[in-house]
Simulated assay, not measured.
Amino acid sequence: MKILGIDPGLRVTGFGVIEKQGARLAYIASGTIRTPDGDLPQRLKSILSGVGEVIGTYRPDCAAIEKVFVNVNPQSTLLLGQARGAAICGLVQADLAVAEYTALQVKKAVVGHGKAHKQQVQDMVQRLLSLSGLPGTDAADALGVAICHAHSGDALKALQAFAPALGGKGLRMRGGRLVG
C-alpha cells in the first residue's frame, strides 16, 4: 500500500510517499510544493495543482494530512487552514481516503513522545526509512504523517481482532474515537 503524507503550509507544503509491505516501510519520494508570492487564491491554486501532480506521479492508495493547530495569531491559523483545505481538496478530488493526525500524534508515532523537536523527527524519519541523507523539515514532517498513518492502521487492525472476544462485531473510528 502506498501512503501519501501531507504537511500543509501556505508558503511550503511538504509531501512524502512511502510504501507499506507488512511491517516494512519503504521510502518512495518526498519534497515540497512551494507557492509563489502573490494573492491568496493563486497560492491555494498552486497547492491544489501541486497535490494533483504528486498524486498523478506516485499514484498513492491513501493519504494522511496533519491537522492545523491553533496559533497565537488567528490570521495565521486561518491562512494555514485554507492551505490545508486546498490540499484536502486535491486529495479527495483524486478519490483518495484521507486520514487526519495532529502534530502530537505524528511525533508520538515517529519519535515516541509528543514534544519532540523538528530535528528529532528528521533523524527518526531518516532511520525508519533508511534514508542516506537527512530529509528537509517539511518533507520529514510529511513522511512522519505517512509513517503515523501506516502505524495507526496496524493498531486498529490489532484492536479489531479482539472485538469478537469483547462481544462486538468489529471496531471502527467515529469522530476520532474507536467504537464497536
Score class of each variant (00 low, 15 high):
3 I>S: 08
5 G>D: 13
5 G>A: 13
7 D>E: 11
8 P>E: 11
10 L>E: 09
12 V>Q: 11
12 V>T: 15
14 G>R: 00
15 F>D: 05
15 F>C: 07
16 G>T: 06
18 I>F: 00
18 I>M: 06
20 K>P: 00
24 R>C: 03
25 L>Y: 03
25 L>I: 13
26 A>K: 13
28 I>V: 14
29 A>D: 14
31 G>A: 02
32 T>F: 01
33 I>L: 14
35 T>N: 10
37 D>F: 10
39 D>A: 10
42 Q>L: 11
44 L>F: 10
45 K>D: 14
45 K>A: 14
47 I>K: 04
51 V>M: 04
53 E>G: 00
53 E>W: 00
56 G>H: 00
60 P>Q: 08
61 D>C: 08
66 E>Y: 12
67 K>F: 02
71 N>I: 10
73 N>L: 01
75 Q>A: 12
75 Q>D: 11
75 Q>E: 06
76 S>P: 09
77 T>G: 03
77 T>C: 01
80 L>V: 01
81 G>M: 07
82 Q>T: 03
83 A>H: 08
83 A>L: 10
85 G>W: 06
87 A>T: 00
88 I>D: 05
88 I>F: 09
91 L>Q: 14
92 V>T: 15
92 V>N: 04
93 Q>F: 11
94 A>N: 05
96 L>P: 02
98 V>G: 06
100 E>M: 09
101 Y>V: 00
102 T>C: 04
102 T>F: 09
104 L>C: 03
105 Q>G: 09
107 K>A: 02
107 K>G: 06
108 K>C: 13
108 K>A: 03
108 K>M: 12
109 A>C: 06
114 G>F: 09
115 K>I: 04
118 K>W: 03
119 Q>C: 00
121 V>Q: 10
123 D>G: 05
127 R>S: 10
127 R>D: 08
129 L>R: 06
129 L>V: 04
130 S>Y: 10
133 G>W: 05
137 T>G: 12
139 A>Y: 04
141 D>Y: 06
141 D>L: 07
143 L>Q: 07
147 I>S: 08
147 I>M: 08
148 C>L: 06
148 C>G: 07
149 H>Y: 11
149 H>M: 12
150 A>M: 02
152 S>V: 00
152 S>K: 09
154 D>G: 04
155 A>E: 06
156 L>W: 02
160 Q>H: 15
167 G>Y: 04
167 G>M: 03
168 G>N: 07
168 G>W: 04
169 K>G: 15
169 K>Q: 15
170 G>H: 12
171 L>M: 13
172 R>P: 01
173 M>R: 15
173 M>H: 07
175 G>Q: 14
176 G>H: 03
